[in-house]
C-alpha cells in the first residue's frame, strides 16, 4: 500500500537511483518494456512496411504490348492515353516516351503544329526527343524500354528507364 501523505510534501527519493534500488530498476524496466512495445506497434502501423503500405497491388502491368510496328505511321507521335506513353516513330526507329511531366506529374500532350510536348498544369515544354526547354520541369521526360514480342508486337516496359539515345530499330 502506498503511503498517502495529506498536506505534507513527500521526501525526495533516497540517494542511489536505479543502479542500487531494486524498486527503481523494475519501475524503469517496466516503462522501458511498455514503451518499446508501443513503439513496435506504432512502427507496424505507420512505418514503411506497416499498415498503410499494402503488399499486393492491383495496378495495370508495367510491361504491355501496344500493337504491330506498322500500325504506327512514319514520322509520327502516337498518344496512348490509357498507358500514359507516346510512341515516337522515325523511319524504322521506335521510342517510347513517358507522358508524365517531370515537374509534378501531370500528363503532357503532343502539339503537332509546334512539334513539342506541352504540359497543361504549369507550362513545361519539351522537344520531340523529350528534352525540357521551358517551364518548371527539371529534367527530360523518361524514355522507356521497348522491344519486340515473339509475335512481332511492340512491347513497352515502363519499369525500365533507358537513355534518350536508345531506339528500337526494326
Amino acid at each position: 500500500m502506498p503511503q498517502v501523505t495529506m498536506g505534507a510534501e513527500k521526501k525526495a527519493e533516497e540517494v542511489g537511483g536505479i543502479w542500487t534500488s531494486r524498486r527503481s530498476f523494475f519501475t524503469l524496466a517496466g516503462w522501458g518494456i511498455f514503451l518499446a512495445t508501443i513503439g513496435a506497434y506504432l512502427w507496424n502501423l505507420l512505418g514503411t512496411t506497416g499498415f498503410f503500405f499494402p503488399k499486393v497491388l492491383y495496378e495495370p502491368s508495367k510491361r504491355f504490348a501496344v500493337g504491330y510496328p506498322q500500325d504506327f505511321p512514319d514520322h509520327s507521335v502516337v498518344t496512348l492515353k490509357a498507358r500514359r506513353v507516346f510512341v515516337v516513330r522515325e523511319g524504322n526507329a521506335f521510342q517510347a516516351i513517358s507522358m508524365i511531366c517531370q515537374h509534378l506529374g501531370c500528363a503532357v500532350h503532343w502539339t503537332e503544329e509546334k512539334g513539342i510536348f506541352e504540359c497543361p498544369c504549369h507550362g513545361s515544354k519539351y522537344y520531340k526527343d523529350g528534352v525540357n526547354f521551358a517551364g518548371p520541369a527539371p529534367r527530360p521526360l523518361y524514355h522507356f524500354h521497348t522491344s519486340l514480342s515473339d509475335d512481332g508486337k511492340l512491347v513497352i516496359d515502363t519499369s525500365q528507364i533507358v537513355e534518350r539515345e536508345r531506339k528500337l530499330v526494326i
Binding site: T48, T49, F52, F53, P54, L57, Y58, E59
Partner: peptide, 21 residues
C-alpha cells in the same frame, strides 16, 4: 532506400498511381 512503392506518397495513395485505393 525510398522508391515509388514504399515512400510517403505511396502511403497516401495506397499505390504507385491514383487508383481506387
Amino acid at each position: 532506400g525510398f522508391t515509388i512503392d514504399n515512400d510517403i506518397r505511396f502511403g497516401l495513395l495506397g499505390g504507385t498511381s491514383i487508383q481506387a485505393p
